[in-house]
Design a protein around this nucleic acid. Structure first.
Length: 345
DNA sequence: AAAACGTGGTA
DNA sequence: TTACCAAGTTT
C-alpha cells in the first residue's frame, strides 16, 4: 500500500531543483524578496493557459503585461484592442471574459482571495479558481488540470476512462494536497506532468515519484489515463469575401457569441455550404480555398475577391497599409495571406 | 450533460 | 496526413 504522505515532500524536493522558469512564475519558495506571486499575473497566465500550450502563451503574456501592467490598466482598455491583442490565441470567449473579469475585479477593489470568491468571476472555473487561490495566496486548494489528471491516474493506476474518471481523480488528488507550500505543490504537479509524466513515453526513469506510482509498478503507466474515443469531426464549407473598395478592404466584427465571437473577420456566412454573395459586390472571382481545423469540425473556406460598387452596407473599410495580420484570428490570417498574395500579383 | 469553443506542435 | 494533445469554461 502506497504511503501518500510522502508524495508531496518528494515532489516539492524535485520542484526545488527542477522548477521551470516561466514569465509569470515566482521561483520555488517565493520571489526575490520572498514575495508571493501577483494575483493579476497569475490570473492572466492561467486564463491564457486554458487548453493552450506554454510555448504559445509566453509572447502573449509578455505583450499583455507590457501594455497593461495591472488589472486596473486592463479594465480600462478598449474591447477592440484587447480582442486584437488576443487574436491568434484561440477560444475568444476567454478574451471577452477576461475584460469582464478585469472590470469586476477593479470595481470590487481587487481580486477575491478565496477559491469560492474567484469561482464567481467570469472565465474562472473549477480549475482556474483553485490555481489562483493556491499559487497567488498559497491556499491548500487542489488544482486538477489535464496534467494532474494524468499524474494521479498513474499514481493510483486508475483504469476508468476519462472524462468519466474525473470525479474519482479529483478525490484522489485531494488526498495528496499538502498544507505546506500548496502553491508550489500545485505548480510542481503540473511541471511533473508537462516534463516527466508526459502523455506519451513518460520518463519514469527520472521521475521523483517512481517509487510511489502504482501504474509504474504494474507496467501500465504509458497507457494511462484511458480516454473514451472522440467522435469524428464533420466537414463544413463556406465562403469568405475579400471585398475591395479603392485602396481599402472590408472587415466586420463577428457577433459577440459563438465561433470567433467578437473577432475581426472578412464578411462570411453560415459555413453550411449555402452561402450567398454579400450585397454590393458586382463581380467576384475565386482565388482559392483555405482549410482550417476547429475543435468540432473542419472547414473548407472558398475565398472570393471582388470590388464593391459603392460604400459597404455593413462592416468597415480598412486601408491596405493599416491591415494588421496579427489582429486577425488564425482562420482569417489564412484568408488574408491568400488574398494579399493575389493582390500583390 | 453533452456540445461548443481555436490553434499550433508533434508523432 | 491523420490524430492527438495543451494549466478549461460556459451553456
Amino acid at each position: 500500500m502506497r504511503d501518500t504522505k510522502v508524495i508531496a515532500p518528494h515532489l516539492l524536493d524535485w520542484y526545488d531543483r527542477h522548477a521551470r522558469v516561466l514569465p509569470w512564475r515566482v521561483p520555488p519558495g517565493g520571489g526575490p524578496n520572498g514575495g508571493a506571486a501577483d494575483p493579476y499575473r497569475v490570473w492572466l497566465s492561467e486564463v491564457m493557459l486554458q487548453q493552450t500550450t506554454v510555448a504559445a502563451v509566453k509572447a502573449y503574456f509578455e505583450r499583455f503585461t507590457t501594455l497593461w501592467p495591472s488589472v486596473q490598466d486592463l479594465a480600462a482598455a478598449p474591447d477592440a484592442q484587447v480582442m486584437a491583442e488576443w487574436a491568434g490565441l484561440g477560444y475568444y470567449a476567454r478574451a471577452r471574459n477576461l475584460l469582464a473579469c478585469a472590470r469586476a475585479v477593479t470595481a470590487a477593489g481587487g481580486f477575491p482571495d478565496t477559491r469560492d470568491g474567484l469561482r464567481d468571476l467570469p472565465g474562472i472555473g473549477a480549475y482556474t479558481s483553485a490555481a489562483i487561490a493556491a499559487i497567488a495566496y498559497d491556499a491548500p486548494e487542489t488544482v486538477v488540470d489535464g496534467n494532474v489528471e494524468r499524474v494521479v491516474a498513474r499514481l493510483f493506476a486508475v483504469e476508468t476512462p476519462l472524462p468519466a474518471a474525473k470525479p474519482e481523480l479529483v478525490v484522489l488528488a485531494e488526498t495528496l494536497t499538502p498544507r505546506n507550500r500548496p502553491g508550489d505543490y500545485a505548480q510542481a504537479m503540473m511541471d511533473l506532468g508537462a516534463t516527466i509524466c508526459t502523455p506519451r513515453n513518460p520518463a519514469c526513469g527520472i521521475c521523483p515519484l517512481i517509487d510511489d506510482c502504482d501504474a509504474r509498478a504494474a507496467g501500465i503507466a504509458a497507457s494511462l489515463p484511458r480516454k473514451t474515443p472522440k467522435a469524428a469531426k464533420p466537414d463544413r464549407s463556406g465562403i469568405a469575401w475579400v471585398a475591395r473598395h479603392g485602396d481599402a478592404v472590408l472587415f466586420e466584427e463577428r457577433p459577440a457569441k459563438g465561433l470567433l465571437g467578437g473577432t475581426l473577420a472578412f464578411p462570411s456566412a453560415h459555413w453550411d455550404g449555402r452561402d450567398l454573395p454579400p450585397p454590393g459586390i458586382a463581380a467576384w472571382r475565386e482565388i482559392g480555398h483555405v482549410r482550417h481545423v476547429f475543435t468540432h469540425f473542419t472547414l473548407s473556406l472558398q475565398v472570393m475577391l471582388g470590388d464593391l460598387d459603392g460604400p459597404p452596407t455593413r462592416g468597415r473599410l480598412v486601408p491596405l497599409r493599416h491591415i494588421d495580420r496579427s489582429s486577425l484570428p488564425g482562420l482569417m490570417r489564412k484568408v488574408w495571406d491568400m488574398a494579399r498574395a493575389d493582390i500583390a500579383a
